[in-house]
């Protein structure tokens, strides 16, 4: 799809989000969470381009969320907290990345999973600091020095999420079209060819990994600002699985896929939970199953196909 069409779709999507959030107040929360998760999934998408699946990106999500939660005690400014949390996630991603980019496929996935589970355990273990599974509540937050509370807070965080999503989305779109993006895809098709061309696949993957950590970190920071209560469950392996799940649901073909997937995922979950409170998980599973079996390109694939047909 052309860059222009994608830009237009992205802006239309953003307008739709704002419209929905205005018309249906309770969806504001759901949509903000969806955008935040979509941001983390955008990072997963980068890794998917290289054919690698991380089952541990919840680590960065949770790390940043806890950084924000603890950070509110020191600096309550959201505009400082979010970049700081993203930066922290990026730094940790760099350290871990130097180690994990040497691995491929299942080992890559499992190592990430192991590290996120270690972090999960740490959050539970250092009970005196983190309050374990009870989690910690964010202190008061300000935005440009103004206190954030009530409906203003909801709109501000949603706006912040939209800005970050559009910004990172454009960045990833440009990056994927660059030679670096081609090299990234080369890791998936035949890594040795990159070596022959004098490109270091590890370095290419490391850049993607750090970027994905930063995006997951920003997503985690947004989640913390939205729920205002963070728990270790954010780092559990099922959260990581959920991110991969959303990536596939949305489709890896476009940077819009993750957000489409995240919105579909969150909405399916709340609607399923309302209809069958004790079997929402099965409903979600069936939806995913149908998407994979009948539309392996994800929801984005469906849209793109229709456009081609039209």
């Amino acid at each position: 799809m052309s860059r222009r069409a994608e830009t237009l779709l992205a802006l239309a999507g953003a307008a739709l989000v704002v419209g929905l959030a205005y018309a249906v107040p309770w969806l504001r929360f759901v949509l903000t969470i969806a955008l935040a998760k979509g941001l983390a999934v955008l990072g997963i998408l980068l890794l998917l381009r290289a054919g690698q699946v991380s089952f541990g990106h919840a680590l960065y999500l949770a790390l940043a969320a806890y950084a924000v939660a603890f950070g509110t005690a020191v600096v309550p400014e959201a505009l400082l907290l979010v970049p700081a949390a993203g930066l922290l996630a990026g730094l940790v991603g760099l350290v871990i990345g130097l180690f994990v980019v040497r691995y491929r496929e299942i080992f890559f996935g499992m190592l990430n999973l192991a590290l996120s589970m270690v972090f999960y355990s740490v959050l539970e273990k250092f009970y005196a600091i983190t309050h374990g599974a009870d989690g910690i509540r964010l202190g008061p937050v300000t935005f440009l020095g103004l206190p954030l509370a009530g409906e203003t807070a909801e709109w501000t965080v949603l706006g912040l999420a939209l800005v970050l999503v559009l910004g990172f989305g454009a960045l990833v779109r440009v990056a994927l079209a660059s030679p670096w993006g081609e090299a990234l895809a080369g890791i998936k098709t035949r890594e040795t060819r990159l070596d022959f061309m004098g490109v270091s696949p590890r370095r290419v993957l490391l850049i993607a990994y750090v970027a994905s950590a930063v995006m997951a970190g920003c997503g985690g920071a947004l989640i913390a600002l939205t729920t205002r209560h963070v728990t270790p469950a954010l780092a559990y392996w099922t959260t990581s699985g959920e991110l991969v799940f959303i990536a596939i649901l949305g489709g890896a073909g476009s940077v819009l896929g993750p957000f489409l997937g995240a919105a579909a995922y969150e909405l399916t979950r709340v609607y399923a939970a309302a209809l069958v409170a004790n079997a929402w998980q099965a409903v979600l599973g069936i939806v995913l199953l149908c998407v994979i079996v009948f539309a392996p390109g994800g929801l984005w694939g469906l849209i793109a196909r229709r456009r081609r047909a039209a």
Partner: peptide
Amino acid sequence: LVTFALFMILED
């Protein structure tokens, strides 16, 4: 992910 979906269904 097919097996992940299956896992979710079987859990319920």
